[in-house]
Design a protein around this nucleic acid. Sequence first.
DNA 1: CTGGGGATGGGGCCC
DNA 2: TGGGCCCCATCCCCA
Length: 532
Amino acid sequence: MADCMVFHTQIASIMEVLANAAVAEICKLVDDDYAVFRLEITQSQKENRTLRRKLLELKVARERAERTIRERVLASRPSSVKILDRYRGMTRGEGHLTGGHRSFVKPTGHNTWRDDQPITVDEGSGTSTQHVIVIESAEAAGPGRSSLVKQERSEGEIPRHSRDIQTGVAAGAPPVATDDPTIAPAQPWTRSSGSSGTLNAVLKSETDIKTLTVTQRLLHTGSDNRSDPESLGLGPLGCPPAPGSEYLPVFQHSQRTVHSRGDGDGDTLATGGDDLSCSYATEMDPGNMPLGLETQTDLSRGDWNRYSSSVYSEGRLDEKREGLVIDEVTVKVEGDVPPTWNADSHLGDGHSQGRDFLDYRESLETNLNVTTHSPLHAFRDRVRVSTSMGPSDSHGHFLSNRARAQAQGGGETSGSSKGKQFLCMFCNKGFSCPQKLEIHQRFHTGEKPFSCTQCHMHFAQAGDLKRHQRIHTGEKPYSCTQCEKRFSRQDHLKMHLKVHTGERPFDCTHCGKRFSESSYLRIHQQKNHSTL
DNA sequence: CTGGGGATGGGGCCC
DNA sequence: TGGGCCCCATCCCCA
């Protein structure tokens, strides 16, 4: 018995020793792996920094090359383009620009930029001077005309042309195109609005065009994700990003800045400041959305216009500048697909919608007089024509009276009442909350994030989808008390009740005939009194 | 047979 | 979210 106890004790001690040895071994392995991992991370960060430096060098070299090309082309440049170089008034406290090249449209109504102010922004290794060049054609140079603003930036040096502009140009000054070698000829970079009749010269460098192309491609491929109200990057307020493709990354960067837990040390993994995927993974997580709430006090307090201004002109941008395009991709790809999302069908429909939207955006870029001369009609017609096959498309009745009035500027007066601080950037109609604005703007953008799972229909509003799904379910909750007829919609029941009541409230003013529906009256008048 | 009108059903949009 | 209105398309009836 005693031998047995001793034996057990020895076994226990041996087991303990073995266990300790195993634990020590495991700990050693973990420590080793951790050290290796840390080493790899450090190396990766170093490589990352090296690549960024190379990228910056390439950018600078590219700008220099562009500048050289412009100077050469400018020598033979026609003098019909009026150039106004305006410096964007932005102090350091207002923010920093992000990205190597970014072009965007600044609505004329948001022109709060100041002239004669060079912008020097500290960006870590060096300084960069940003300047804004407003190119207007001579025909479109009048007040209130739209103009496309190109923002240029060169890093690591103050460009020569910047100094030139600084000394020679003020707002509204006469054309100085011939003096400025940096201004490219209007021809290669000009897009004019074909439909609006307003000739707006648009200056875009090749880099800008590439940026725009990438962004447009992202809108094409990612517009569906973008249209998802949850993954739109709407933020906790549901406030939509500016539908302008070029502005999206700006807004997102702004958000990302806030979500960064660190102080902006982009190379530190722990801060997440420069770790785009980490940052966006957090950002796109609905559970973490309240983080954004803290950060969007501007939006919660102000209206869309103010927000837009902050994006367009105040430059509330991220300091981090590398990997902008990657950033966009990250956002759009990682967005959660909504439950009702029908990816394949959206790839078709949403794509065309995105195209229409882009067309519209392009039109908007070159004709910003949307308030008084909205291209909405054309846009809406394109959308409807693309989806509707009815012969009545030729009638031009796509817009309801209300919508038509809003599209033609009525929305400004009817909608932007007191308390409606969120203004539609397309028709200037005001809304009391960003969610309503978001829904409304789908009318302009053609976004239809709500998809029917049983057919390929898409809807801009959840209620429309729900109403539509009664077609599939056969649900008819509204029954006529007179004839037991059942309807899926209450308004149809209401219409049906006129059969029993004989109510015909719509009279033809020409022949006195009465109709139960306004549309009957309208059709009647079209058929019988069309010459009147 | 044809065209006008009624009835119904569906989508768009706003409140 | 639901109600309500508008518009349109389609089918049917009837003169």
